[in-house]
């Protein structure tokens, strides 16, 4: 949807942010080891940050020169509420993951977002979420033994207990 000959809402601001970022990173790169040697740890980051600064300034200049504006608005076309809300949900997920644990957080995330996007029965959304979460859990946690934060669910103990059931009480 981007047209290089017209200015998007927020494009100038974004270009300014990138110039600022590049300048800051260049300053940080110089701080690493200064200009002591060609092989110093800071040499390569300095070169990369310098390239960023030069290109971002050139991009900013070109953006400023654009006369025509696109008939779009920032909060309806670039960052509409649905995108902001979804991103906020993901942030919330990341924050809750440690304290609440993987299973409840994911279930909550999936149910709420599917329900909100699909607008079709809460129970239906919950069912779909539960089924897909079960699949993810089996693959990541059981087969690939990725230890997701267990939080409030005593996962390790439950698994051990389940395992105990499977083994039918036979002792080693």
């Amino acid at each position: 949807m981007h047209d290089p000959s017209k200015k998007m809402p927020g494009e100038t601001a974004f270009a300014v942010v990138l110039v600022g970022l590049s300048g800051f990173l260049l300053w940080q790169a110089i701080l690493i080891s200064g200009f002591e040697a060609l092989s110093s740890p800071g040499a390569f980051p300095m070169a990369a940050a310098f390239a960023m600064l030069v290109t971002s300034v050139a991009i900013l200049i070109k953006t400023l020169r654009l006369r025509e504006r696109m008939a779009l608005r920032f909060f309806t076309d670039v960052a509409p509420p649905v995108i902001l809300a979804m991103f906020a949900m993901m942030l919330g997920y990341a924050l809750l993951l440690k304290p609440l644990g993987f299973l409840p957080t994911s279930l909550l995330f999936l149910t709420v977002s599917i329900f909100a996007l699909r607008r079709r029965g809460l129970l239906w959304s919950f069912g779909v979420s539960l089924a897909s979460l079960a699949l993810v859990y089996v693959i990541f946690r059981l087969v690939f033994t990725v230890l997701m934060p267990s939080g409030v669910v005593p996962e390790g103990e439950i698994l051990a207990w389940l395992g105990n059931l499977f083994s039918g009480g036979d002792t080693q």
């Binding site: 230890l147 698994l159 080693q172």
Partner: peptide, 19 residues
């Protein structure tokens, strides 16, 4: 699952009671 089952056999109160 079998590995889990196999290793979780001893009484639960004793270390190790989980992975």
């Amino acid at each position: 699952l079998a590995a889990l089952a196999f290793t979780a056999a001893p009484a639960l109160a004793e270390y190790p009671e989980k992975e």
